[in-house]
């Protein structure tokens, strides 16, 4: 979500805010339609246990991937995601995105507050592609617990929080500790994934729903141990220095 915000801010700064905001709004509405179109039929048509196994599996795929990347980044094996680099790259692409006479006339247009197709498309793509992961989480968490509305509201609240942070700090987006957030989300998704795969398969967890807390603690502890082990496995002492990561990885 932070990456999407970075792209929107870059698009707004370089191509004009009107198109950036319009692209963002259209992407958010499209994502909301997907939640309604896919989430509601899932709840009503698919048996709950089967849904929990599938949903748990999807959450596990997502959660294990996020956790793996967060551990690799925390231990220095993978560069920390650099929002400043993403911002600079997006600005550079947007500035050089058009050429010739059409570029100069287009530039005059968006500077005058008119619609700019490039700014719109970049903002839309950034929000839509990043938002698809959020939609996946909302649909899976919401449908398997029968609280799709609550999950959607929680995601909307997260969007508002990230949007507010973006409005306040704008270009200081690298201050948002993205890796820590991803570590936390990865732990939660993996815990929910294991829990629901077990629930759907018929495993009786000790303590029922409370066992989720034990899973969260267990995966958090595992991640902490993994970070320590991976730090020791760095190839050379100076390799632990983090470098800016290419955009898109």
């Amino acid at each position: 979500m932070v990456e999407a915000l970075t792209i929107v801010v870059a698009s707004g700064v370089s191509r004009g805010w009107r198109s950036a905001i319009e692209g963002t709004v259209v992407a958010v509405v499209t994502l909301a339609v997907i939640v309604l179109a896919v989430g509601i039929p899932l709840i009503h048509l698919v048996p709950l246990d089967a849904l929990r196994v599938v949903v748990g599996g999807l959450l596990l795929v997502l959660g294990l991937n996020w956790l793996r990347k967060a551990v690799l980044r925390s231990s220095g094996h993978k560069a920390i995601h650099d929002e400043d680099a993403i911002y600079a790259k997006t600005i550079a692409e947007l500035s050089g995105g058009s050429s010739g006479a059409s570029a100069s006339s287009g530039e005059k247009g968006w500077r005058a507050g008119r619609r700019d197709a490039t700014g719109f498309v970049v903002a839309f793509k950034g929000v839509f592609l990043e938002g698809l992961e959020v939609v996946m989480i909302v649909i899976t968490l919401g449908s398997s617990s029968n609280h799709l509305g609550l999950a959607a509201v929680a995601a909307a609240a997260a969007v508002v929080v990230v949007g507010s942070v973006g409005a306040l700090v704008a270009r200081q987006l690298s201050e948002v500790p993205e890796n820590s957030l991803k570590m936390g989300v990865g732990i939660m998704l993996t815990s929910f994934g294991v829990f629901w795969v077990g629930e759907g398969s018929g495993i009786a967890w000790p303590g029922s729903d409370l066992f989720l807390l034990a899973l969260v603690a267990l995966f958090a502890a595992s991640a902490a141990v993994l970070i320590q082990v991976m730090r020791r496995a760095l190839p050379s002492p100076d390799a632990s220095r983090t470098v800016s990561e290419p955009v898109g990885s």
Binding site: R68, H77, S222, L226, M230
Partner: peptide
Amino acid sequence: LSLSTWRGRR
């Protein structure tokens, strides 16, 4: 998770 993380080491 441990195996995959180990596989992704530098």
